[in-house]
Amino acid sequence: MSPSLLTAEGLSGLLFLSLVGVTLVGAVIAACAARVIRSVAGLALCFLGVAGLYYYLNSPFVALMQILIYVGAVCVTIIFAVMLAESDETKMPLKQNGLVGPLGILAGGLLAWALAALALKTDWHQAATKVNNGTVADIGQSLLTTYSMSFELISVVLFVAIIGSVVLARGGRSKS
């Protein structure tokens, strides 16, 4: 039952473990780093790890989209905002209560523990039959049939977001 390290299964298991490590380390850096630019780098690392997890979940298309959208677009946009606004926490005077850090760790740990315990204690039932295999062709087909309405609506949402962010960000700017 337990594959040796030198077989293909063993190596893929090792790769999976390192992806999990990359994801969690990136998340911790993103949440704790004092300089925001390091935080963004940790976020990119975490998203790369999550893309690898998606690959292990039989969805290479979603993994590719994760890299394209999150690492390629969202992280770069956040870096632009970091450069436009001076946002380092190191130079700021400390104004918040000293209890926020420990209480935050307590609350976050409690939430994670409760969710994990819920997941581990539940007896999940597998579906008896699978309608399809979840390939890219299947995704495209259901995007254009069952989910065509949501597909159109999401493009409207993105359009409104683009217009809205342009309007918000250029208000108050001088004409010169």
Binding site: C46, A112, W113
Partner: peptide, 12 residues
């Protein structure tokens, strides 16, 4: 469990 840990770290 990984999802729960990501959620907890994000909440913190």
């Amino acid at each position: 469990v990984i999802g729960a840990m990501l959620f907890g770290i994000g909440f913190y």
